[in-house]
């Protein structure tokens, strides 16, 4: 179940990514642990996702590449800050775990999760998507290269079918 997250960590290492920012998410939990334990990566816990957009602009100005990990609900928080990315043509790699789609139980996740791709595209981001473990390494590797070589904002959506839908039941049932 977590092998694809190990693939992502390896790709981040191979791409010489030195800073990772994140708002915790169950779908990214294994990757966050790997990054936190990696002495070559400085990991930063954010209080809200748009900090990560600005943070990685600062990292790039200082000569380092980074990646931003978040859940689809965080995309809405980033919209105005993505104007920094677009106006300055900063490279920005975002890895986004999806909610509000395949197998979702919580209707409050649906408004943002069902429109994540459109929001990102309107904000000027190139969007890739993975729904099967075998797609993850190639898609993120390709997205990362596009990001650095074209100085673009790239989002890779990791579908809820890939991550596994969260199941909530009441205690005792």
């Amino acid at each position: 179940m977590t092998e694809w997250q190990d693939d992502i960590h390896r790709i981040l290492r191979d791409a010489d990514i030195r800073q990772v920012c994140y708002v915790p998410d169950a779908g990214h939990s294994r990757l966050i642990e790997l990054c936190e334990a990696d002495p070559a990566i400085s990991s930063t816990l954010l209080s809200t996702e748009e900090e990560g957009v600005a943070h990685l602009a600062g990292a790039w100005l200082g000569g380092q590449k980074g990646a931003l990990l978040m859940q689809s609900s965080g995309v809405g928080n980033c919209i105005n800050m993505l104007s920094l990315t677009k106006t300055c043509a900063f490279p920005l790699l975002m890895l986004i775990t999806m909610r509000g789609e395949w197998g979702e139980f919580n209707p409050w996740q649906v408004p943002m999760g069902s429109t994540t791709q459109q929001h990102l595209e309107l904000a000027g981001c190139k969007v890739y998507r993975c729904d099967a473990p075998g797609e993850v390494a190639e898609t993120i590797g390709t997205g990362a290269r596009f990001c650095w070589y074209t100085s673009s904002a790239v989002a890779v959506l990791l579908g809820q079918r890939l991550i596994g839908a969260k199941i909530f039941v009441e205690d005792g049932r």
Partner: peptide, 14 residues
């Protein structure tokens, strides 16, 4: 709202 986080990413890189 982005000035401080830009500075943080920069401070870590430099």
């Amino acid at each position: 709202g982005g000035a401080v986080p830009v500075g943080l990413g920069m401070a870590i890189a430099q």
